[in-house]
Structure formats: structure tokens, C-alpha cells
């Protein structure tokens, strides 16, 4: 279980998180929705320790994220970044097997390559893509490679940062289905941040609405449409009028 309790974070004068409290039960798929610049990515980065919160506590499985062996902590996570964040200088299979080629989870090179190719197959990419470089792939293929890298070491927790941004609707649908399948199949705890409502309905068990630095509403995906929360209703219907200012 991932728990955030009254988490605050500011960058200079700009207060991004103003008391985020959120619980993600083990094995659930939580989707955090909210407009651009509302602190969704910062929330994920706080959980991972990439950004240090100014106040509040974050625990994963009851353990504070700032204590204990950092490598062992990070080994429990997989993350798909918004732009895939593949390493340009490495081939596709080396990107996927990055964690398996070094550190505590190191395997023999041939074995790591085999696992990478298997994970590439899992996300619908042929073995021939293994020896290409990221620059030779389309945006959708890069996202799939990023997804394969995120699941390569069978993590307990997976984060997806705007997984369908910049993709055409068909490719977005493919990525959404893949994420859902993988999360169910692996039994992983997942947090996805997005403002794509199609993704929300395809991926989420639970939904949380982040606005003005706090969680405005949280509930199951089935409850979302009739929840009566003005923030959620404005957001999911894409209306310009409502409590969320169109110009931020």
C-alpha cells in the first residue's frame, strides 16, 4: 500500500502540493487526474524520492520512503515516463534490460537479452526491434519499449506518467489495453497520471482528482461519472466554466 499524508511541496514561490493525502491499496490501479501543472508528476516524483517533499509523510508498505536501502526500495518500482525517456546511446534491448545488466538484479548478458526480447513481445514488439536504437522507432513504439523497460524486472509497483500523450487514438488504445493487461497479470500496484479520460476508464480501479495542490475527490471509476463533485464533473466533461479556471 502507498500512503501520502499531508504532503507539501513548493518550488520557490510556487506552491505545487498543499497537503496531498492519498492511499493506494496494494494491487489496485489508481489514476490521478487533473489539469496541466497541478502537481501530478511532482506527486509521483515525491513517492520515488526524485523530489523531496517540504512536509508530510510518504510510506510504501508501511515503510517511509526516505529510510532504508535506496536501491532495494527503487528495485520495487517500474516507471513509464511521459516521453519514454529511453537512453539514446543504448539499443532497444539494452534499454529494456538496463536493470538486468547491472546492480543487484544483474544477470548474464545473454539471459538479460532473452528477458528483454520476451518483454518486448509482451508489449507487441517483434524481436527484430531489439537491436534498433530509440531514434529509429516511432513515438508509439518508444512508449511500448518504455513499458517493456518498466516491467522488465517484474516490479511490485508501476507508475505511468501520461502514457498516451502524443499518441494517435488507436495507439493510445493499444497502450491503455497493454497497461491494464500487464497490471492485472502481474498483480502490481499502479499509479497512472493522465488527463486523457479514455485512459482513465480503461486503466483505473480508483480515481483521484488533484487540483490546487490537494486531492479534491477520490473514488472508484464507476462512481466517477455521478459523483457530483464540481471539479470532477467539469474536468471529465471538458467544460470551460466551473470551479477550475480555464486560464491558470
Amino acid at each position: 500500500m502507498i500512503e501520502l499524508q499531508d504532503v507539501h511541496k513548493a518550488f520557490g514561490d510556487k506552491r505545487v502540493l498543499c497537503g496531498v493525502t492519498l492511499t493506494v491499496p496494494k494491487g489496485e490501479s489508481m489514476v490521478i487526474i487533473g489539469g496541466s501543472g497541478t502537481g501530478k508528476s511532482v506527486t509521483l516524483k515525491c513517492i520515488l524520492g526524485l523530489v523531496t517533499p517540504d512536509a508530510g509523510t510518504i510510506t510504501v508498505g508501511g515503510q517511509p520512503v526516505t529510510k532504508g536501502d535506496r536501491d532495494a526500495f527503487l528495485a520495487r518500482f517500474g516507471m513509464l515516463f511521459q516521453g519514454a525517456a529511453l537512453f539514446d546511446s543504448l539499443t532497444v534491448w539494452q534499454n529494456v534490460a538496463f536493470r538486468l545488466l547491472r546492480g543487484a538484479q544483474k544477470r548474464a548478458r545473454a539471459e538479460a537479452r532473452e528477458i528483454a526480447i520476451e518483454k518486448l513481445r509482451r508489449v507487441g514488439l517483434k524481436a527484430e526491434t531489439a537491436d534498433l536504437y530509440p531514434a529509429e522507432l516511432s513515438g508509439g513504439m518508444q512508449k511500448r519499449v518504455g513499458l517493456a523497460r518498466a516491467i522488465a524486472a517484474d516490479p511490485e509497483i508501476i507508475f505511468f506518467d501520461e502514457p498516451t500523450t502524443g499518441l494517435d487514438p488507436i495507439m493510445a488504445g493499444v497502450i491503455n489495453d497493454l497497461i491494464r493487461e500487464i497490471v492485472v497479470e502481474m498483480g502490481a500496484t499502479a499509479i497512472t497520471i493522465t488527463h486523457d479520460m479514455t485512459s482513465v476508464r480503461a486503466i483505473a480501479d480508483d480515481v483521484a482528482m488533484l487540483h490546487d495542490g490537494v486531492i479534491q475527490w477520490t473514488g472508484t471509476v464507476a462512481e466517477m461519472d455521478g459523483c457530483g463533485d464540481p471539479y470532477v464533473e467539469q474536468f471529465i466533461n471538458g467544460r470551460a466554466d466551473g470551479p477550475i479556471e480555464a486560464v491558470r
Binding site: 527503487l74 517500474g78 516507471m79 511521459q82 516521453g83 525517456a85 539514446d88 538496463f98
Partner: peptide, 17 residues
Amino acid sequence: GTMKVTEQIDALVTLST
């Protein structure tokens, strides 16, 4: 610098590197 801007540095950290 490009690695930083494209979140590759963050990706390295999440991959325990």
C-alpha cells in the same frame, strides 16, 4: 543536458543507477 530535459536522468535513478 538533453538527458536531463528528456527525463533520462530521472529514469536512471528509478533504475537504481
